[in-house]
């Protein structure tokens, strides 16, 4: 589905709040931006996942 957002900041915030239940298919720049945020967040917990 295609969803209109008033601005990119709000779009990223809303999408992130839905967690794994949502995947951005396009535009590519928005997909990249969300991916960067998720990767950044995951990096905080990388040590935990290694069981250290």
């Amino acid at each position: 589905m295609t969803v209109p957002f008033d601005n990119e900041f709000w779009a990223v915030s809303a999408i992130l709040s839905l967690g794994a239940a949502v995947e951005v298919l396009g535009p590519a720049s928005m997909r990249q931006r969300v991916a960067d945020e998720v990767r950044g967040a995951a990096a905080h917990y990388a040590v935990d996942s290694q069981g250290l």
Binding site: D6, N7, E8, A21, G26, P27
Partner: peptide
């Protein structure tokens, strides 16, 4: 940031 944007999403039904 104020640029409006249309985002194509795949959304789980529960969400």
């Amino acid at each position: 940031e104020q640029t409006s944007v249309e985002v194509t999403l795949r959304v789980a039904a529960r969400a």
